[in-house]
């Protein structure tokens, strides 16, 4: 679960998010390929970025931190957790809060994608090199 949480935030931050926030070239009329700019171009959709994306991009990062801690404590204490109620309470608090944070990120991810789908680039450029 911790590994999946890291995979989700790292792929979201370094693969999907750059597509979402790509700036359109000056004079671009059709913003369909530029989700952030598309949302901000209309007052009716701008809040999806200003609240939804701004919250989602940060709150999602609380999840892997909390779940990694929970995994560490669960492995480190194993059966001892049954005799350490304070540790269990903290784990419950962090795991429940992180599930809530994941829910926020998931909800806004889905709604943002409905209003301005991220299609990704047609060209995947791994390294930016100079002209030969």
């Amino acid at each position: 679960m911790a590994a999946l949480a890291w995979l989700a935030v790292l792929s979201g931050t370094y693969i999907i998010y750059p597509w979402y926030r790509a700036a359109p070239p000056a004079g671009t009329a059709n913003l369909a390929a530029y989700p952030r700019s598309l949302l901000l171009s209309h007052p009716a959709t701008s809040q999806w970025h200003l609240i939804g994306m701004e919250w989602k991009e940060h709150v999602a990062w609380l999840v892997p931190i909390a779940i990694t801690m929970a995994a560490f404590v669960a492995i480190r204490y194993a059966r001892d957790l049954g005799r350490q109620p304070q540790l269990r309470y903290a784990l419950h608090g962090f795991v429940i809060t992180s599930l809530f944070a994941a829910g926020i990120a998931g909800f806004f991810g889905a709604m943002l994608d409905k209003n301005a789908p991220v299609d990704g680039g047609n060209i995947i450029q791994v390294v930016q090199g100079g002209k030969q």
């Binding site: 801690m69 560490f72 404590v73 480190r76 001892d80 350490q84 304070q86 540790l87 903290a90 962090f94």
Partner: peptide, 11 residues
């Protein structure tokens, strides 16, 4: 019982 310090540090 394992001391709780390690868990407290992680939390």
């Amino acid at each position: 019982i394992v001391p709780n310090g390690s868990g407290a540090a992680a939390i």
